[in-house]
């Protein structure tokens, strides 16, 4: 029954406990390759920079869902609420003359985190089903509020007149999207580092513990609710930063940053890549956008059908996502080592 690990050479054995833990948290070749590819993409696809920027934003959004779903096991149908809150926060700030991007982005993250904190108390209550209802309900409420508050958000017409200052006062947002891509990629990378740190810290263990067995968590003295509030707030904050990025790089915000499709898309992206794995959201975002590009060449209008079909098929046949599939093929290293560090 016990699987014998033969892959890792027992050269350094017996390893100390700390060394075993550290092994999980190491940077690997995959990390290097992934980010090198992200940098290289700028030079290889100079004409597709807007698409690449979208991928980075979507990846960050999915990464924030991963923190919540993949690590803590909370199913949310309304994560778009935080994405949208961040987008509107950054957009409205810039529209009112505060065009400095980095502080704008920080504000987006804070606004979304505040909204996440405020609504987290509802999410704590009850079962999976209650959570589905509450997360969906909160998101719809925020959407309705944004729709009604047209004086602030522009309502159904969207938020126009977003003008950004140069990044660091130097790099203008240009028509080709050069600055936008570097900016989005840098923000994505920094957020990735932060989330990587979180999941490798004791709190990451806490999150996986809650997903694994909340009853046992409380029996080892964990204030489960307080931990859940913390992770919900964090995930909301990162989603807000992703939303803020979208507002700043496209200089426009419309109501569909808040809609259900956005939440579902985030989930789908994560499931494509593989949840509970740091790169799941990022790999998923790449695959998703490429698929969307490819499909929209064939059929633009009924894209949603394929999105649905993808969800159905993934659940039936490839629950671990792309990284799960890859892992099955590359069973060289212990399967778990991807948790904290690589992939």
């Amino acid at each position: 029954m016990t699987r014998v690990e033969t892959g890792a050479p027992p050269a350094a054995a017996p390893a100390s406990a700390a060394a075993l833990l550290r092994e999980r948290a190491r940077w690997s070749l995959f990390d290097l390759l992934f980010w090198a590819a992200a940098l290289a993409a700028f030079f290889v696809f100079p004409l597709r920079l807007p698409l690449l920027t979208e991928i980075a934003i979507l990846g960050l959004f999915a990464l924030s869902i991963d923190l919540l779903l993949g690590y803590a096991g909370i199913v949310s149908l309304g994560h778009a609420a935080f994405f949208g809150a961040g987008a509107y926060a950054a957009g409205i700030l810039a529209q009112h003359g505060w065009g400095e991007p980095i502080s704008g982005l920080a504000a987006a993250g804070l606004v979304a985190a505040a909204l996440g904190f405020a609504t987290s108390f509802l999410v704590l209550r009850g079962s999976d089903l209650t959570r589905l209802m509450v997360t969906l309900g909160v998101a719809m409420m925020v959407l309705e509020a944004a729709n009604k508050a047209a004086w602030l958000t522009g309502g159904a017409d969207g938020l126009n007149g977003v003008v950004m200052d140069p990044v660091f006062g130097v790099f203008e947002f240009d028509l080709f999207g050069h600055t936008a891509y570097w900016y989005a990629l840098a923000v994505l990378f920094l957020c990735f580092l932060a989330i990587r740190r979180i999941v490798n810290a004791p709190f990451g263990l806490v999150l996986r513990g809650i997903q694994g067995n909340a009853l046992r968590m409380s029996a080892v003295g964990a204030p489960v609710n307080r931990h859940l509030v913390a992770v919900y707030t964090l995930a909301a904050g990162f989603a807000g930063i992703a939303g803020g990025l979208l507002a700043q790089t496209t200089q426009f915000v419309s109501l569909d940053v808040l809609n259900f499709q956005r939440s579902a898309e985030g989930l789908l992206v994560l499931i494509i890549g593989g949840s509970g794995v740091l790169y799941g959201g990022l790999v998923g975002a790449v695959a998703f956008k490429l698929m969307q590009e490819w499909l929209s060449n064939i059929t633009t209008q009924y894209w949603q059908f394929w999105l649905g079909a993808a969800l159905v098929l993934l659940v039936l046949f490839a629950r671990g996502g792309l990284l799960g599939l890859a892992r099955r093929f590359l069973r060289r290293r212990p399967a778990r080592s991807e948790r904290g560090g690589a992939a």
Binding site: Q304, G308, L311
Partner: peptide, 10 residues
């Protein structure tokens, strides 16, 4: 949830 959302979209 994912599966039935997929059905809804389809």
């Amino acid at each position: 949830v994912l599966f039935t959302i997929g059905l809804v979209f389809m």
